[in-house]
Amino acid sequence: MDRRTFFQKSLGMSALLGAALAGKHESLFAALSSSKSGKTVDLVALKGGEPEVMFRKGIEALGGISAFVKRGQKVAIKPNIGWDVLPERAGNTNPKLVGEIVRQCVQAGAKQVFVFDHTCDNWQRTYQNSGIERAVKDAGGIMVPAHTEGYYQDVKIPAGKNLHDAKEHEILLESDVFFNVPIVKNHSSTRMTSAMKNLMGNVWNRGAWHSNDLHQCIADFATYRKPALNIIDAYAIMKSNGPRGISQNDVVVLKAQLLSTDIVAADSAAAKLLGSDPNEINYIRMAAEQKTGRMDLDHMNIAKYSF
């Protein structure tokens, strides 16, 4: 062994050792955080911080991003990018939050991080004016278009009552990890849009949901693929005239955020933040009845953080 190979080998060895140690450390940390109260955390609720600061704390409470994203995996992130409005109108998920999630996924070694939405308004204007395109690109993610039927593939929803099939964006079928990143808003059709309603942007043929009992279809689609994590942006929330809003007068700055692997629990808490009773939002109740998740917030282990 000459000096050169010695150096190369020892460098490789120490890198390996370092990686192993780091991995161990993270799992140790995850164990610590969930054992703090003796049982797993059902819901993380945060308030008072900036979106990216709250996310850092929230994901840490759930064991860190590496508990969800493994090296070399493909990640799909679905924020709400529905409307051609500026970030201060709170019509779309906060770009700072989306940017931070992408950044952490990239740092965790994700192979590719995709961000998309089947927008309502013109997709190019919406991607751009929401501020999300810029934030995602700066953080090293990829904005994926979703505006033509060619991007979607037929999927079956075996547990659906009304909704038995849908055309789902192909990037979801390709990705290993799926993060659902909605914003809480008042909604003229369904009273509230948040985590479950956000999944409507995963599919092409939304019109069919509207004509086939919207609430039941939303609940049905939630049975299809459980997001790895639901991260609900409640930094600024639209209290009236949703989902598009008329002006900034519709917006209240709440500075909150919710994280949960249980989409029904996340929506139930979001409803309360919006000032509604989750029981009055039909699709939440339906999803709970279909055992997609829980809505009994009182019996959950909720980790709360204030800044």
Binding site: A45, K47, G48, I246, N249, V252, A256, L273
Partner: peptide
């Protein structure tokens, strides 16, 4: 011009306590 109820100042305040 679209008319709008202005959200009262009290509601503009940040969250004091989580409602759950």
């Amino acid at each position: 011009k679209p008319v709008q109820e202005i959200v009262p100042k009290s509601a503009q305040q940040q969250l004091q306590d989580f409602p759950f």
